[in-house]
Design a protein around this nucleic acid. Structure first.
Lengths: 367, 367
DNA sequence: CTGTTAGCGCCTTCAA
DNA sequence: TTGAAGGCGCTAACAG
């Protein structure tokens, strides 16, 4: 390995001088600079990152840890993976400007809590800050991590205390889409296909549903089911729904994500039920297939890539300024109107959802 | 920051002993071990990665550098991003078993060569080995990098000397799909929608086309065009084709990737040309939308995730064994028969493409 | 403008 | 079974 010493020797200067040249500092004579540059070039010297980190007391690396689904049921689920991939790209985009690097770790959802913990702990020793995707670590563990390095939780529970949180405003998006069903399409009898009970996003969306229903007494929730966010679980829920409400279908099915909505669509299609003629279906997330399903799905778009960018900005900010109090960042979502709600096909539009949040602060975006 | 010294002091032992406990070595008495464990727990000690790396002379980190398209023309292009995302996940999956980490860097395709070079050089100082996505760095630069750290090129030019290469067998896949058109559908007059001239994958596919035509004298290439791999460029090529061959269309269009095939499909649909009735269209890659396009696209599937896994294995292997000669790994592709070639809809099948390669070695897979 | 030197936190012989 | 101590490659005072 070529070290600073090798360069110094070849150029006939001290390591300090070489270091100065490497970092483009001023106080070096042109002659010396040239000599050192040549030596660097000849030797093919590249500074050792570990040594720099140790010496500077700063690694200039952040970590991103998010969840890897273990089973991919079908191609559609795979597309759903784009979520974290896009977050990753957003974060990388932001970090790249600074010259820092990003370490990624896809934790496995079904690993034991202990394995996840060790993984995160080890990661925290290699970085200056951590971006953690929703669903990882207990609140206590996050808190312990945050005591050691700055932590930003992405799309996480809004109740996080120790860490910054950056999330899409599921609440306002959900409110917008349900209001659309009720106000524009006069839907009265709704069915809710909920997400997993431990998914913060699902709770936000559920909460919004109940709020909207609360202020629209002419409407009722005639039933609900819980899925796993997968297409298959949506399909099952659709079959159950058909069995339970045959001859007396709800007016609309509100699904907690697009995959489940697409599964629901499949089940209804198999049964020969026309959407949106006989029943409306809406999703959430706006994954790519939502635009090409039959009928095209009305849904809510999340600013996924921006989630990554913003989270990264927050993290860098906090690394620079560790004692700043934790903030909650809610990014705006967009209602994407296609045909599955009952709107005429081809009339696709997107509308920003009104900013709102259930009893939680809304900070000003600054990225 | 909590260091080994803090733990040692609290536990009343030397740092050497703490280090032993941390690494689960045997030669420590149970009593001591317990005491040290407690101290670690109490202090929340986590080893500093930079110090470990420096001390061990090994970072236990690999780098992945791949291309980020700068403009995303439409949602479909975005899905195409799945390619590197999947490679990344494959590599991460493999590296995770070893306890090492992965640093990612999405280089921008339109950065200057110099910027790309600096980026890669800096990266090389932070890792024990590098995975480089196709299209980066000149051969000379790769060679210089490879002199410093082990390098594996993914989907790269087959001519790389200094580094290992892992790629999908585009040649055999392309041969299979064109042979399918000729032998099963008796297509005679082919049109080729080629990819960028500097894309190794495109050259492989082009070469295969010419080989197949060479051994099927009853067939002819009536024309070709060059696209950029984007949907839009496929659409343009389609419009040109319609203008050029109106009333005398080719029997089939062979596209170098799915995005362009989908663009071609669009252009033909707009002109009211029926596919596959009047003309066949085939793609390459099997991105998700290929399965839901109208008609569903016959194409060739690449084992993308496995590309990542295999590349990572190769890299680890070479890090362990630096003087091993460079190898070329060609992973098998699969013909995916849907309807755009002329096969009856619903008869979707996949068939492994016969392993073959144009005058290059084919090593045995070992992952 | 340039060199000397003392760490950064950890691992690892070598002794005890 | 445990401790002492040198060194990994680089940076940043501090001197000159």
């Amino acid at each position: 390995m070529v070290t600073l010493y090798d360069v110094a020797r070849l150029a006939g200067v001290s390591t300090a001088t070489v270091s100065r040249v490497v970092h483009g500092q001023e106080r070096v004579s042109d002659a010396t600079r040239t000599r050192v540059r040549r030596a660097i070039e000849d030797l093919g010297y590249v500074p050792d990152g570990a040594a720099q980190s140790l010496s500077r007391g700063r690694k200039e690396v952040i970590g991103l840890a998010c969840k890897e689904r273990d089973t991919v049921y079908d191609a559609l689920e795979e597309v759903g993976l784009l979520y974290w991939d896009q977050v990753l790209r957003g974060a990388e985009e932001r970090i790249r400007d600074t010259g820092w690097s990003m370490l990624v770790s896809f934790l496995h959802a079904n690993d034991t809590g202990r394995a996840q913990r060790d993984e995160l702990d080890a990661l925290s020793g290699k970085v200056d800050g951590l971006l953690i995707g929703e669903g990882f670590g207990s609140a206590e563990h996050i808190e312990r991590l945050a005591a050691r390095v700055p932590v930003v939780v992405i799309a996480g529970a809004m109740t996080e205390q120790a860490a910054d949180v950056v999330a899409a405003n599921s609440f306002s998006g959900s409110t917008a889409i349900i209001t659309h069903l009720i106000s524009e399409h006069h839907k009265r009898r709704l069915f809710h296909l909920d997400g997993p009970s431990d998914a913060p996003d699902a709770s936000e969306r559920r909460l919004a549903l109940h709020r909207v229903l609360g202020s629209n007494p002419q409407c009722q929730l005639i039933g609900s089911a819980r899925g796993t966010f997968s297409v298959r679980s949506g399909e099952h829920a659709g079959q159950d729904l058909l069995a339970r409400y045959s001859g007396d279908l709800p007016d609309a099915v509100v699904c907690a994500n697009d995959q489940m909505a697409i599964g629901m669509l499949k089940a209804l299609a198999v049964a020969g039920i026309h959407v949106p003629g006989e029943i409306s279906v809406v999703g959430f997330d706006d994954i790519y297939p939502a635009g090409v399903s039959d009928p095209p799905l009305t849904t809510v778009r999340q600013p996924v890539r921006m989630l990554g960018r913003r989270a990264c900005s927050r993290l860098l900010d906090r690394i620079a300024n560790p004692q700043r109090p934790a903030t909650l960042d809610l990014l705006p979502t967009q209602l994407v109107v296609r045909a599955s709600c009952g709107c005429p096909p081809g009339a696709a539009t997107t509308r920003p959802a009104a900013p709102m949040s259930p009893a939680k602060e809304l900070r000003q975006p600054n990225v």
